[in-house]
Structures are given as structure tokens and as C-alpha cells.
Design a protein around this nucleic acid. Sequence first.
DNA 1: CGTTTGATGCTCT
DNA 2: GAGCATCAAACGG
Length: 193
Amino acid sequence: MLRHDGVVIDLGQHSTVVARALLGSILHGPNGSGRVVETEAYGGAEDPASHAARGLTPRTEPMFGPAGILYVYLIYGMYHCANVVTGPEGDGQAVLIRAIEPVKITESMRAARPKARRDVDIANGPGKLCQALGIDRTHDGLDLAKPRSRVRLELAKPPPKNAIVQATRIGLSVAQDTPWRWYLQDSAWVSKR
DNA sequence: CGTTTGATGCTCT
DNA sequence: GAGCATCAAACGG
């Protein structure tokens, strides 16, 4: 359970519920902060696209921990992806943060994303946002609810249902048709419409 | 525009 | 050894 300014979101709910509820929340990282505008849900053993589908391994161990911790993994040898662990402990559910709208584009964010020529390209993808905010494997497993955490989540009231679009997930070789991606319809900061 | 391809290294079989 | 919850540059029309 994560609370902030009277907003309460039970992260122990299923990842598909939490993924929607997290839209609008603020993710804080070492380089700056951003509003979550796009998420994807990954389930436990029942979701073949989830890292949890093949059971607990050294890499996925944080996924099987309590809800509200951060799961960061390396992909394609050079990018990181940041996830919020959800659901019951031991289940392996998580929500991938796919895009953020920077609260303010800081100098360290620019320095971390030198190839982003346009502002909207700074954090409109899971690998890009980790670069921009400075999130990497050293933050794997930390508690997102702790005020002192280097990476933390500040909850906001979830947006109204009619502002949210549900779509299929991106970049998968299995379960491509499962519509477990959500994004803010009017946001220019999402990775793909 | 849109589509294809190369980079790069960890993880699990 | 194969594949990967990605990104950016190169290519083609």
C-alpha cells in the first residue's frame, strides 16, 4: 500500500489494475522527475510474456518480492527497464513504466540523453526514461515508497477513465494480442500510439 | 515518410 | 548458443 497526499493505491492488486492506476503519478530518479504517461502490465506464471513465467531466477528475484519495490533489468545489453512490483508476494507481477513526461527537463537529464534532439524524445520509451532519470541495476530491489529512496514513486489521483487508452503491449514475441498497455490519450510524451 | 538492421552483453538452456 | 518488455542510424520510395 502506497499513500501520498490522501491518495491510496493498493499495489497488491493485480498488475493490470495497478498499471492504469499509476498513470499520472510522479516517478523520481537521480536525475529528475517525470509524470507517468504510459505503462504495461506483466502477470505472474499465467502470462507467457512475463519474466516471471519461467519461475524465480536470480535476475527476477525482486519481481517475486513484496509489492512496491523496484525491479530493474538490463535489455539488449545496453538499456534498462524499470518496473513496479505488484500483486501478492511470490506471484511475480510487475508494471513496466514505458514513458514519462518530465516535470522539468534538467541539465543532467539532457546530459544523459545527448541524442534526444526534441524534448519529447527524452523519455518516451522504457530504455529512454531510465537513461534520462539515471535509473540502472544499482537501484534494483529498492523500496519505491520510502521517501529516502533514490528512486521513488509519488502517487497522484488517477486520471478519469475517458482520458486513458488501452492497447497491446510492445516488443513481444509472445502474447502480442494481450491488451495490457495503457497510456494517456492526450499526452505527446508516450512511446507509441 | 516507413521499414530494416546493427549494437551489445546478460540470462537461462 | 539463442533470444531479448530497446534504440538510433541507415536505407528505400
